[in-house]
Design a protein around this nucleic acid. Structure first.
Lengths: 289, 289
DNA sequence: TCAATAGTGTCTATTAGACAGTATACC
DNA sequence: GGTATACTGTCTAATAGACACTATTGA
């Protein structure tokens, strides 16, 4: 990958102004699992998946909630920009992250062509964020309708994503369309209606789907838990993300190799105390070896 | 998402020149499975996974092979740009695609800051592409080395990706680093050495990993096959992508719900003729319902 | 004591793995 | 007939699902 002398002379002549350029932003979908304490001292806390949103008091979309994001200064890497953004805007510092998807539709920003690289960030309840609010996430998917034809099928499905905190409810509606022909396949996710700024509801939806997929074959879930946790907490977290009930004994069997017992127990709960576990660092989540 | 009057007046004043902007490109990792006919008329053809590369006779990286890509005209959507690019540059028209990852490292292009949105495209052997060449892909992964410490672990792994056609061999070496701490996890993939232009070997590697992951829980593999195929072809394709041998009887059992028999058979092979199958359009690959 | 959760044991059903065996087409 | 592949049957091992059971704790 060394440059030839021809390359070098080309670079001296190169003007980067011949192509029009888009603006560039990064946006962060920050997720956590929130424990809602029960009034009954004995009862388990109930868990909610939450996303952190900021209310915009600037244009465009003034008054709307949005994901924390920023324009990218070209002296910084994308990752660095995202990290600086969440540090400065919402005071989040240690977290898991991965790049999600790049949104670049011509009309996604009313100002000008803005490309946004979105990230999924996972954190814990103990990080205290500023300048915004956590919203409970509720997803309801309608049954997909598939129409089979000689060359394949078309399928469509409506998805309702509701974001709620104590005072506000943000309703969003997405449509997932799938068209499969002999040599082609098109999947599109469109916003039917949204009360969030820009296409941020799509970013949130993409993050939820990514999380749900990865939970099955990686150890990503542990980024939403404290370093030590009870097996019941782990199970409830799986149930929350997967949106289905699991059987206790079977769950313990399946996860037994992923976790490692510590000597600590959670006491003071009016029932048998539960042992704390941590991620087994020798467990191989990936098939990389 | 309607704009307020405050938004509207803001937009009139808005100047998009206050932020420096990056150049924007799209790059396509075009993959197919190639059947190499055996000289023995009876023997099965052997399959190879291939990627399509163009030799650059322009700067930068003149003389190097690269993925087909282009700068994005801001009047076009990203997807459209990618489609036009592969139509014009390599004459590919009907294919499966999905966005892969956006590469934006400061130093990834010697000219200026260039952001590239990469796509994975899947096609069949019958599409005839122009202006470039197909290269066999061979991946060799060294055993990952994991060092466990009190707060987590660090892991590193070397990956060798060799691209070969009849006359040329392009060697590439990547390093996958993973660092896991209590509240943080960092994964990075770095180019140790590459004989391809830009960071294109990373794009190819990302595509291979994506394909390998998705083959397990989606029907993505069928985009690399003809509309009808024998079960042996299907099995060999799985084996190629997963890089492991599968047992025939078990494979047929597992895939029986995904496929649908046709009335056609492949004959003239010096052995029992094999039935042709197609994807069962009623099979639900995704857990979307 | 009892409500509520933590954790174990075990039966059955399903799926995965291994491999032997049968079927068939073409030279 | 012999070779190479297509396809089926079946035994066993492992895993998943269901559910009953025991263990503990604090008001």
């Amino acid at each position: 990958m060394d440059l030839s002398s021809e390359d070098k002379s080309f670079l001296e002549l190169y003007s980067d102004s011949i192509y029009e350029k888009p603006s560039l932003t990064v946006d962060s979908v920050i997720l956590r699992i929130f424990n809602e304490e029960s009034t009954n001292y004995r009862k388990l806390s109930s868990k909610k998946l939450q996303v952190f949103l900021l209310k915009r008091n600037w244009s465009p979309f003034v008054g709307y909630y949005a994901l924390p994001g920023t324009f990218v200064d070209l002296n910084h890497e994308l990752n660095e920009t995202m990290k600086m953004c969440v540090k400065n805007k919402v005071n989040l510092e240690n977290f898991y992250y991965e790049q999600l998807f790049t949104f670049g539709d011509k009309s996604r920003d009313p100002r000008t062509r803005v490309l946004s690289v979105s990230y999924m960030l996972l954190t814990h309840q103990n990080s205290v964020l500023k300048n915004g609010e956590w919203f409970d996430i509720e997803v309801r998917k309608e049954k997909a309708i598939r129409i089979v034809n000689p060359d394949g099928y078309t399928q469509s499905q409506m998805v309702f994503v509701t974001l709620k905190n104590k005072t506000e409810t943000i309703e969003n509606k997405l449509k997932i369309s799938l068209k499969k022909e002999n040599l082609q396949e098109t999947k599109s996710i469109d916003i039917e209606s949204s009360s969030l700024a820009f296409d941020h509801i799509k970013m949130i939806f993409f993050a939820l789907e990514r999380l749900k997929n990865k939970i099955e074959y990686t150890d990503i879930i542990f980024n939403l838990l404290s370093p030590t946790f009870t097996l019941t907490e782990l199970k409830l977290s799986y149930e929350l993300v997967l949106d289905e009930k699991l059987l206790d004994a079977n769950f313990r069997r399946k996860t037994s190799k992923m976790v490692e017992a510590t000597n600590s127990f959670v006491t003071g709960k009016g029932h048998r105390s539960s042992q704390l576990f941590k991620l087994n660092p020798n467990w191989n989540s990936t098939n990389l070896d």
